[in-house]
Nucleic acid binder design. Structure first.
Lengths: 213, 213
DNA sequence: CGTCCCCTATGACGCGCGTCATAATAGCGG
DNA sequence: CCGCTATTATGACGCGCGTCATAGGGGACG
């Protein structure tokens, strides 16, 4: 489509790899399949990714990390006036529940897929670790800006990521937003309670009616 | 281990499948490899698992779920005197940090691996969903027994599982217990705060007007 | 002793994979 | 127009996979 004009074959292949990996896993994603999905010439694989599949996977993971990090920054920017940690987490969760609702199914996170399928490949494991670090960075910054004390912010960022990844997994298995919604509902108070003394307790403006079960 | 005398080939294959799957993923685990690891006769595969690899994977997932559920019950029983939700979660986390410390590496959860690799196979997705349900059940019971109000217990159980699964993933990627320890540290207070006292207005839903795109 | 039936053995089949070798083509500065 | 490099085309190779077909053993029981 239009993407083939804006982006070169190389980028399209990385993008397609990430998409296919998150749907089917790394091992189940063939290189020929990536080429087809990207509408890229097969010869370009060898040319742009002399490191073979491993290189392509690593770059797909890195791409996903950049995407996720930017997404976090955009969430924060879009929250405007009075951003809260719980609100940020809810926005992150909503990205996934929205996908489930519109697509009828939930594809996973490519970083998680690479972790599960390639944990024994050192280079990919390193790429995945770097991805989580890159994803955590803007989260930590955002939490700090929202008033979370310095030593606590990185921990909460990691907690947010852990809970999100796990909830994605469970929601995917159940083909239901339940786990994601529950995660957001239950974690938000804790996150908001960690901000400075100002608006410590009391999600005042949030609508009622819990989402679980 | 003298497992080959205590258990029959069938059980050994299911057990081995779970072990290999959690290390390498479903797709990367070959049936011949399972047979070798289980020291089982190859012909038994066809005989005991006429449904092929899919059946074996599903049974491995079910086996893992039973194991995890029993483990939770044992944790609760072993906590004796004054069990707390945070303590239970810490015990669950410790199971994984211990493995990382003793083995030097962290294999994943077979249920998570099956989710990532087989989400498009309906029967396996169902098996995985059932696994999470079976895992959640004793957790919910334990939380209720510890004084978590009825409506909240299932939600917290799901939150615990989500956070645990995600933290396993990140710890595996980083080859470090950091994420697991952080999850335990940060989540325990929230879990313990839920005993006895009911939240005044109940947990709140996702905020309106969020920040996506 | 024969005869089931459960279990096991073994080899082949077809497929798709990742990778490589080898060219053909295109675009562009000289 | 000439080369040179970047890019693409194409086909083959070997491998391991999941699956199947077919047959061999080996107790239990009549």
């Amino acid at each position: 489509m239009g993407s083939s004009s804006r982006y070169g074959p190389r980028e399209r292949m990385v993008f397609s790899a990430a998409q296919l990996i998150r749907r089917e896993g790394v091992a189940a994603t063939g290189l020929r399949q990536v080429v087809a999905h990207a509408e890229a010439p097969r010869g370009s694989l060898q040319h742009y990714f002399p490191g073979g599949k491993e290189q392509l996977v690593n770059e797909a993971v890195a791409w996903a990390a950049r995407y996720a990090a930017r997404r976090v920054e955009r969430f924060v920017a879009a929250m405007g006036g009075s951003p809260t940690p719980g609100g940020l987490f809810a926005a992150m969760v909503r990205q996934w529940t929205d996908e489930l609702e519109s697509d009828g199914t939930l594809a996973g996170c490519p970083v998680a897929a690479a972790t599960v399928d390639c944990a024994s490949a050192d280079s990919t494991r390193a790429a995945v670790a770097a991805a989580f670090a890159e994803w955590t960075r803007p989260l930590t910054v955002a939490l700090t800006d929202m008033g979370v004390p310095e030593p606590r912010a990185p921990s909460l960022a990691t907690l947010m990521l852990s809970t999100l990844e796990g909830a994605i997994l469970i929601s995917r298995a159940e083909n239901s937003p339940r786990a994601l919604l529950t995660a957001a509902t239950e974690l938000a108070p804790l996150l908001d309670a960690a901000t400075g003394t100002q608006w410590a307790s009391g999600p005042s403006r949030l609508p009622p009616d819990s989402a679980d079960q």
